[in-house]
Amino acid sequence: MNDVVIYTVLSLTGIGLLAAVVLYYVSKKFHVTEDERIARVEAVLPNTNCGGCGQPGCHAFAEAVVKSGDLSVLHCPVGGNPVMKQVAEVLGVKAVEKDPYIAVVRCSGSFEYRKKTNVYDGAPSCAIAAQLYSGDTGCAYGCLGMGDCVVACDFEAMYMDEKTGLPVIIEDKCTACNACVKSCPKDILELWPKGKKNQRIYVACLNEEKGSTARKECAVACSGCAKCAEACRYEAITIDHNLATIDPDKCKLCAECIDTCDVRNIVATNFSPEKLQQASEHRQKREERERKKREEEKAQATANNNPEPTV
């Protein structure tokens, strides 16, 4: 009986020792030297593996950033500037500040404004519906409302509003990882500069139909009337294909365009009503001034063009 115990102990110890030697040898032989900075960069990254930076995951991002050492292209949208600063410290290079972005919903066609023209009965996926036809409302550009974007969001930063049928972005949670943008077959979602004091202005419509057709399809569709573009002092608003688009780089957030829209479809986030009221008054005064100026010029021109009648 004792013999059995001894043999067992001995043979198992022998196997264990042998395995240890083999493991040691293998780990030496096949050791891969990886830049230790990669691990340190990875440690400061959010490690959500969302792919928002364009790399397949955080490890790949760390590898790429260590390899290139250039922070002007590679940027972690989830961590933002604080994280990139830490990354810069690890790499010993200068950090590049980038404006934070956020996803915005460029459609306001809620149930109330956009009447259903048919009932969709296929698989509940926007991608499938978009492939089948132009949608269950008259508007071929609008949100399909089945929430592919909500499914795509890894940060629980979106939900579908049951009253409007449109997605809503939760500002504090959105990391601008771009997943929802990629998932939307109608390109309703767009990354937009988060803006100073979290304020941003955009046109919540993508309808490119002629004004009258667009309004038939959706009561708040942009008709391309260009009133907002005329009101803009910074030429930030362009009209293309019957659709007004704001260039966020040019927009100075003066909010003077907001109430020029007769369907109130220029969205101004985090502006107080007083501020909007102010902006509106400001614009009206300015327009008044400009109008007077024009009239004066006109009067002047008329006066100049008509010299005193000869006798």
Binding site: G122, A123, S125, A127, I128, Q131
Partner: peptide, 12 residues
């Protein structure tokens, strides 16, 4: 199950 719906999506 909406098998073909998803297969079409996959084909695209």
């Amino acid at each position: 199950r909406p098998i073909l719906d998803y297969i079409r999506l996959s084909k695209t």
